[in-house]
Design a protein around this nucleic acid. Structure first.
Lengths: 263, 263
DNA sequence: CCATTTTAATGTACGTCGTAAATAGTTTAC
DNA sequence: GTAAACTATTTACGACGTACATTAAAATGG
């Protein structure tokens, strides 16, 4: 077996200039000659997202995407320069789901910075849960697609007008996004471990308890022993995946509140 | 080219039971017959870490690790069941670097929960900077190696005795670790993008500015335009990578303070 | 000491991946 | 109608993890 784990991919490995042209639809003068294209960039992107959503990033291969569209892998290269650029397109496409920034006074928009940041955090969490592969795509030097920028704008509006410097606004938005990424990552990976291995947490624990009992000395690590077993039991008894998330979010936003400039 | 990006790997894809036996040194009865082993599990782990540190996770192949040790890839399989288990070993090995938990009253130990949590966060950050590939290894269903447990114990001691429930202690430690992971991830990936592509941030920006100027409408995203360019300039002028980290850490710990039980 | 047994290291091979290059087929422009 | 432009397929290459078969080396039992 080549890779029975979950291989994570890197966005931006392709030619970023080409990615950006694709993202912004530059140079889309319709081809004048030759056979009608069976595919579109948007269609390929959607198919790739569907594959990644359903089967994970490690099954997302050019051959698999082609198959999804009734086409060979190499056909895709008529539309997309390579897999790296396709990942860039996938990223920007899912960011479209959070929607464009709305005016602050639009009906239904949360009022107050705290409600707005909570909304952003929860929307991001939902996005990660819908597209778990997002957590595994590194976004270093992000390709600035239209929806990526829209999301950035939307995020920033949550903390605009509070007397923060531009720099601090940027830092704050990044802080919230970093937190959400980290918090969801753990939860999603747990769930995927269950699905991909077919072993539940309980079974896993029971399989390893005997070995741990033999090698682990609770005297040496008393706090870990106590808290670990307490957390394990709680986790078994009433596992609410959003509880840790909401706990951390509250703590984080309390900290933000303490660091806002006086009104 | 097969994968010019950075492929990220998954710990725990091998047989976790076998990994734990390796981690705890179970069944290490010395071989009675046959040629002397040229290698050791610890040596292989160290070599793999060296490769990953120096060249990144995408160059970490069994063939490459073998080469590092003057041996073919297949030799490694006499010591380690597969690459997944090797990753488990690498993880636990680097956790050893943070050192065993020390008694709270040992000389040099920070006093007070806040100083202890800061220490943990900064130690973790330093660990990620030394071993950037750590950020790319998913730790779902972590294999409970000795140093992993020691680290957990060490982390928990920072918040022990504050009147928190065991569950809240666990959540709090996880919160800090999640934050550090998220914050360092962005910074490290930026740096790696520069190294692996040979393009500096300034060059990258200059290459894309013309296209962006053509397609990006600042009227539509005024906040992003303003803050983005301010952040970009600041970033160019005086880039202190630890600034964002310390900012976030302060905010987070202020939030923790607001959520501690009254003394 | 030698034959047997056990273990380590190697060599070869398979099926996977991304994608370069060559080829075949299709549509439009002149 | 022919040439040019374009799309889709086929084939092939070098990488990957690792199964399998083979060879070499050490310790044991006689």
């Amino acid at each position: 077996m080549h890779n029975d784990g979950v291989s994570i991919e890197y966005s931006g490995t392709g030619d970023p200039t080409r990615s950006m042209e694709l993202l912004w639809g530059v140079g889309e003068d319709r081809p004048r000659r030759g056979p009608k294209p069976k595919l579109t960039v948007a269609g390929i992107t959607a198919a790739a997202i569907a594959v990644a959503d359903a089967e994970g990033l490690d099954v997302l291969t050019m051959r698999r995407v082609g198959e999804q569209l009734g086409v060979t892998a190499m056909s895709l290269y008529n539309y997309v320069p390579g897999k790296g650029e396709l990942l860039d397109l996938m990223l920007d496409a899912v960011y479209a789901e959070v929607g464009p920034p709305a005016p602050a006074d639009a009906p239904g928009e949360p009022v107050g910075w705290r409600a707005r940041l909570e909304r952003i955090a929860r929307d991001n969490r939902a996005l990660y849960l819908r597209h778990p592969w997002l957590l595994r795509v590194a976004t270093s030097r992000p390709v600035l697609g239209p929806h990526t920028i829209a999301k950035y704008d939307r995020d920033l509006r949550a903390v605009d007008g509070l007397g923060l410097t531009d720099i601090d606004m940027d830092l704050l938005v990044q802080l919230v996004n970093d937190y959400v990424h980290g918090a969801v990552r753990g939860a999603v990976e747990d769930a995927q471990a269950v699905r991909s291995t077919g072993i539940t947490d309980l079974e896993w624990w029971e399989a390893h308890a005997p070995l741990l009992a033999r090698v682990f000395d609770p005297e040496r690590f008393p706090v870990a022993a106590r808290v670990g077993s307490a957390a394990g039991e709680e986790y078994q008894a009433a596992h609410d995946p959003s509880r840790a998330f909401e706990f951390g979010l509250k703590v984080l936003l309390d900290g933000v509140e303490a660091n806002l400039p006086p009104r």
